[in-house]
Design a binder for these strands. Structure first.
Lengths: 329, 329
DNA sequence: TTGTAAGCGTTATCAT
DNA sequence: ATGATAACGCTTACAA
């Protein structure tokens, strides 16, 4: 039972391949009788067109690359799911690659995807490979940056207002009378980490609180680095009474650290980026900056389809505002 | 700057397209001088072969479909990540589709993917579409079932021993002197849910405990259904002292339910399928049946590459054994 | 060792 | 309204 081609259908239906193609694509003229008949034959033989041949001929792959730092992170996958839905509706498929925050893997991924002739690229980048990303965009592949920005690259971007949210987090802690606030930041190669750090610093400055370098520690967005950061902070002569953590994984590590040190989980007030599902289940002082991955995904999906449809209007820069949810609300 | 083709390279290098192709694929004979020269030209012009044209000619798409019920579930995405790595290494790309447990969407997904001429299909199915899955396999597309089985379909399967693990869970609770055990099962259309229910029933039977129908409630693997199940169980004249829950989302719902009802979180002993990350952070009596998504992914990845490489040996049925981790360990 | 050319399954142009 | 056929970019007999 070898794969059927358009020729088989043409022969069976007693018409030319051109006619079959016209029926398949609802293009050109074809009489109703023939149309019905052809569709009947197609159904009878259970013919499925070959998307690869079509792609070659039309020079359109109908595929979109999506490059993420961590495929197991529900934040990114909530974004991805919304995009996938939209693409599926429109007949596009997504090629996923997981870079594990590694710029070298990211480079390989970009090479791989360009060979696969993706029509667009959705990227939550590691921070590296600027030239290549630029080149990809220059080659006519639509690039949409998501969650993370690249300064100087004029590309569509959908991300959250990290500076605003971080500043709000610090203001919240200050209002609660905290003055020594530990700041656990992420890798400065990543734009979100830079922005969250910056927002926090602005918050402190505007409140007239001097920046204490020993209270600012840099993790790498992993759980272990959060635990480590907590240990360092609590080992200070004058430890913080509150902590601002730049992502959810590190915050998880912070609580594990408290447990290891025998500190009550509510002895330190924490504000953290990212949705932390368990937070509703126990009494600790954890406030959360809720992000909007699903909304981001929908916006990216719409923008993507518009761009693929030929929309050449100016580069868009969409900003969503995360919401601070205090722990007692 | 229109896309370069093999002809451009051939002209520039002063050789035929066949030679370029040979260099590109390390196939046939080509003298070292020419090889060097061609590679030089390729690099200079930054030529990238067109994977679509190659696919058409070779009748190999180098693509693999992966159909999952929930792309945001870290369990499935841990599986997927391991597969993605392996595929990427081998030059295959993955087409993801999320079915949201909906058999109709699954059907659309399968149609979509066969048009895209996937060479293999990784499926964590909804339970429906048996004929189509059979047909896909019959058409020479390698099918690997993951996590969930289809009885009567002779297909490679990599899954966990749900019956054994569920039985062990019940035995554990019985050993802790529980006699009234609430069982929160999943949708019986899904094989894992059926198996987990069955294992639990075997455990009770072997201990000589009569099955109490009112203690067996069926959820749908969602958080809300877990909360709902707890409410129903606690409304019984004689509520259970322990609960066996068939997945992690429902367990989360159970704890939310306890909180809503004002029950102390450690007033009921729970054993649950699935990794529950927060469980280490607070004192409740939650034991967990740890699954092995990463291992599953690696096994599937290896099997997949073997099958794509032409391994036609008998259908494999790999079974991993999840481990019960008691809450005090 | 290298080149020529047919062909993969479509679509689209040009006739008819 | 329908049909022939060239072309998409590559691989691979077959020839030289």
């Amino acid at each position: 039972m070898t794969k059927l081609t358009i020729k088989d259908i043409a022969k069976e239906a007693g018409v030319s391949t051109a006619t079959i193609s016209r029926v398949l694509n609802n293009s050109g003229y074809v009489s109703n009788d023939i149309k019905q008949h052809v569709m009947e034959v197609i159904r009878k033989l259970n013919y499925q067109p070959n998307a690869i041949a079509r792609s070659l001929k039309q020079e359109k792959s109908r595929s979109v690359g999506i490059v993420l730092p961590d495929m197991t992170n529900p934040y990114f996958m909530n974004i991805a799911r919304a995009i996938q839905h939209r693409c599926f509706q429109e007949g596009y498929h997504l090629l996923f690659v997981d870079t594990e925050e590694n710029p070298d893997k990211e480079k390989e991924a970009l090479d791989f995807l360009t060979e696969k002739r993706i029509e667009a690229l959705i990227l939550a980048g590691t921070g590296g490979n600027r030239e290549q990303i630029q080149a990809i965009s220059g080659a006519g592949i639509r690039v949409i940056l998501v969650d993370r920005r690249y300064s100087n690259l004029k590309l569509d971007t959908v991300a959250e207002d990290n500076i605003y949210a971080s500043k709000a987090a610090i203001e919240y802690l200050i209002e609660k009378n905290h003055r020594r606030i530990g700041i656990i930041g992420g890798p400065q190669s990543i734009s979100t980490a830079r922005e969250r750090r910056q927002g926090a610093m602005i918050g402190l400055e505007e409140a007239g609180i001097a920046l204490a370098p020993e209270l600012m520690v840099e993790g790498d967005y992993t759980r272990d680095s959060g635990t480590d950061a907590l240990r360092r902070l609590m080992a200070l002569p004058e430890p913080p009474t509150a902590i601002f953590s730049a992502n959810n994984e590190m915050t998880f590590g912070v609580y594990l650290g408290m447990q290891q040190l025998g500190l009550p989980l509510d002895s330190i007030e924490v504000v953290s980026f990212g949705n932390l599902e368990f937070s509703s289940l126990f009494r600790h002082k954890l406030s959360v900056i809720m992000q909007n991955p699903h909304d981001i995904g929908e916006i990216v999906g719409d923008l993507l389809i518009r761009r693929l449809g030929g929309d050449d209007s100016e580069t868009e820069n969409q900003v969503l505002v995360p919401k601070l949810v205090p722990y007692e609300a």
